[in-house]
């Protein structure tokens, strides 16, 4: 028989992972709800999902491809940009959805107990649907341009996983911070807008001057986007600086989970 001890005195600094695992069905139920609700709002919902990335694509292709004519190697600029943008869009959507998820679920949090971290985590799953659709479009374009993915394609899931962890790290942290400080509702969109240009979505990371490199790779998505394109087109392999990005992702992720756990205790009282 299950035994629960609630003790005001003792409190671990790490969340109860066993409990999160027991609630795994909720992870999928919440993701399914998000997907269903988005697409239940008829075809408009579906269109809006893609308007933003398509808009970004047009702007980036025009500015970097037509006006600045950046060097994208042998890969056509459009293909180059879509590949980068698909990873970036998954990350940024996850960051903002997870970031606002706790404040958005306050009525549930105040009335039912479940491990709260499941809410931001579920956004990583629901975002995969849009990502999958983008990937299919990308493969269609690759066929059109006569590109066959090389052997590096097996690394694609790894880079997707890194995008997932980056998005979750930022999203979980923001969702916990916004419980007390609603200001973060404004910070995330700013980061996303800035990040689109601070990430080599429409240009090559190698175009960045050496002196800025350390600063540049502070953005974990730099390595992810580069690696993403490498696994698809076999272009320049990611810079070793990428490991530095990965380290940042995991450090932030651990801090985010621990901070979330700390805030979790008072979430229902503060919201």
């Amino acid at each position: 028989m299950e035994k629960t001890i609630i003790d005001a005195g003792s409190r671990s600094i790490l969340p109860n992972f066993g409990e999160v695992y027991r609630y795994r069905q909720l992870l999928f139920s919440l993701a399914w709800r998000d997907i269903r609700v988005k697409y239940a709002q008829t075809y408009i919902g579906l269109i809006w999902t893609f308007i933003n990335p398509i808009f970004n694509l047009i702007v980036l292709s025009f500015v970097f491809g037509v006006v600045a004519k950046v060097d994208t190697g042998e890969v056509p600029h459009l293909l180059f940009t879509i590949a980068g943008l698909s990873a970036w869009t998954y990350f940024s959507t996850l960051l903002s959805d997870a970031g606002s998820s706790i404040v958005g679920a306050q009525s549930m949090i105040k009335k039912i107990y479940f491990p709260r971290i499941v809410i931001p985590l579920s956004k990583a799953i629901s975002g995969l649907v849009d990502f999958g659709v983008t990937l299919i479009c990308l493969f269609a374009l690759m066929i059109y341009y006569g590109y066959a993915p090389g052997p590096y394609i097996i690394w694609l899931p790894l880079f997707l996983l890194l995008a997932l962890f980056s998005g979750l790290a930022g999203g979980i942290l923001a969702s916990a911070l916004s419980v007390r400080y609603r200001d973060f509702g404004f910070v995330i969109p700013m980061i996303v807008r800035l990040g689109l240009y601070a990430t080599p979505v429409a240009y090559q990371a190698s175009a960045v001057p050496e002196s800025y490199k350390t600063l540049f790779y502070l953005n974990p998505m730099v390595g992810v986007v580069e690696g993403f394109r490498w696994s698809l087109f076999g272009t320049n392999p990611p810079d070793p600086m990428m490991f530095y990005s990965i380290a940042i992702i995991f450090v932030v992720f651990i801090i985010a989970v621990m901070y979330f756990h700390k805030v979790e205790a008072t979430m229902a009282d503060i919201l």
């Binding site: 035994k3 629960t4 001890i5 609630i6 003790d7 005001a8 005195g9 949090i109 105040k110 009335k111 039912i112 107990y113 205790a265 008072t266 229902a268 009282d269």
Partner: peptide, 10 residues
């Protein structure tokens, strides 16, 4: 849903 300030529950 919410945590006690002090005390223990089993």
């Amino acid at each position: 849903i919410t945590r006690p300030t002090s005390g223990r529950i089993e």
